[in-house]
Design a binder for these strands. Structure first.
Lengths: 161, 161
DNA sequence: CTAAATAGTACCGATGAAGTCCTATTTGTT
DNA sequence: AACAAATAGGACTTCATCGGTACTATTTAG
């Protein structure tokens, strides 16, 4: 369906929330209740983001999460890579010709590559897609301003819409 | 994982093949054997493409498929839409506030929309993605060279398989 | 008439998404 | 020191979809 997973949605929500309160330390619970995201799931996602170096964590009471780097340096591509794994427009993109040494005929990756007429052009398209996703940063997502009525603090954004 | 499904890969292969032989009528069997795509699966895909008006079909012996419109008018977005369904960057993109009338509390779509801080900026990003996918046409995929026909083109492949 | 093709649809197994739960470990507070 | 609040790291379950198969019906050239 070419959709982001819901986990990525949640990750974006959490990261944007952190970006809007750059100094504050947000706990998973705060974010989960505020945006009605299932808490245990959000916790898993925040763990992933932390492991990838997109967020910093602080344990203990009053602990929580903060952006590890400025919002402008976190791209959509980074977020997707952290929670969904690598972007792979087609099967062969990340193909590495690893073959079972005992059976050279069995190709473990995409065996279409040998006959596939679209492989190399699609590679180029894939590159452009990655470029596109890498160009969208958290700052872009935060900037456009008050999207939804709910959050009062969103009103701080200049020139709504 | 943000990947195209294999069905889309197969659809592209088939469509590119047709584009390279604009007049000829290619049967599903031809394409399947040539590119080692499972025949029954490819048949299903070609049915989808035909239903969506991307390909024309001719029944009976010597029948097969042809592009319904010039390659330059078939976009990657069209192909994805035909075989995978609508592109949906996030859950709320196609959100329609349809609610079960008997249970107003149960929202059938994405209920995050009411509190989601990223909804409208993501909408914009979604628009750009669609724009990108719509800008890539079959002609672009075919153009980079008569990649097919021989393994010669594939020699440049970084895969070295 | 027959064989070769598409049309439509139902079906199945495997994979991954979405979500839960449990057990550490860290750390501020009392 | 004890406790509670938070993260860390997993395993686990459920369910939808993907990838693929199969069957029947319909069209049509020879």
């Amino acid at each position: 369906m070419l959709a982001l997973t819901r986990k990525t949605d949640y990750a974006l929500i959490a990261l944007v929330h952190m970006a809007q309160d750059p100094e504050g330390c947000c706990s998973a619970r705060e974010i989960a209740t505020r945006y009605r995201v299932p808490l245990p799931l959000l916790m898993n996602i925040l763990k992933l983001l932390t492991r990838r170096g997109l967020a910093k964590s602080a344990r203990g009471p009053r602990g929580g999460y903060t952006l590890a780097v400025p919002a402008g340096e976190i791209s959509l591509y980074d977020v997707i890579g952290a929670v969904e794994g690598p972007v792979q427009l087609v099967q062969c993109v990340e193909y590495k010709p690893r073959q079972a040494p005992d059976d050279p005929l069995k190709v473990l990756g995409c065996d279409l590559v040998t006959v596939c007429p679209v492989h190399s052009p699609i590679q180029a398209i894939h590159g452009k897609l990655v470029e596109f996703l890498s160009g969208v940063t958290l700052a872009d997502v935060v900037a456009p301003g008050g999207c939804c009525k709910s959050a009062g603090q969103l009103a701080q954004s200049p020139l709504g819409a």
